[in-house]
Amino acid sequence: MTAMTLGEIQRPDARRAPLGRLLRSELRMVLRRPRTLILVGLLALVPVIAGIGIWIAADASANSGNSVDEGLAGLVDGNGLLLPVFALVIGLNMLLPLTGAMLAADALAGEAASGTMRTLLLAPVSRSRLLAVKAFGVATVTLFVVALMAFTGTIAGVILLGGDGMMTMSGTTLPLGEALGRILLTVLLVTVQVWALAAVALAVSAWTEHPLIVVVVALGVVILSGVLSAIPALDWLDPVLMTTSWMGIPEVIRDPLPTGTLTEGVLRAACYIVIGYSLALSRMLSRDG
């Protein structure tokens, strides 16, 4: 706190660094970490692997005469544009929350662990702006990863599974343009959900210096929500659980689009984002370095 005040006094002309440069440098830093790059690469492979799996399964089941699988997976065969949606839905089960938690862990707790947090707090940047830059880094990389998964998924789907237009769960066919619109919508919805978990993780990240704790707590939240939503006696709890929105994501491939469920999911995520960021901000403001 005192260090901050001193910094402000000594360099009154440099009180504000240009925001654009801060954001760029943060992104560059996050994307240059080898672990981020490995994670991004692996996630981009998920839709391709899923596509190959369904392709092989479809070949095998064509001989036996049974349908590939139940639910969403069963619809993906011969319906390539559904592959990105399918990949994002399975990604949201564990891989994408893990990514969000890891990015949030690196953002604050990681800095504290490597001792660079002190430098950041001394820099001529206000604490709230520092958090905003960190949150921006997490959010942008999340969006990038999700969009990349959708991209590789679309390419792999069209090449491996083919099909023109998208066959929806309601048994209608959407033309290519609308199908791509649905994929884009899925990307946005999934990203918002990962942001919600990342916001909670960021709050934990601001309070600890051990990145591992952040990841463990975030995954604990995911697993606990899943367990609570599986207990019928606690059904009244469902509307406040983060995972309820996640399970609603496959609704995106119904026709006409059930906007009610999807909007509710986004609003729920927004509530978690507000809670997470305000807790993180309060810790950042009161932190002594």
């Binding site: 509530c271 984002i273 960021y277 305000s278 807790l279 309060s282 810790r283 009161s286």
Partner: peptide, 15 residues
């Protein structure tokens, strides 16, 4: 800091 935490958490929980 306390005000921020309280206000934000309250908004989210009410939502």
């Amino acid at each position: 800091a306390l005000t921020v935490a309280a206000a934000g958490t309250a908004t989210g929980v009410v939502g």
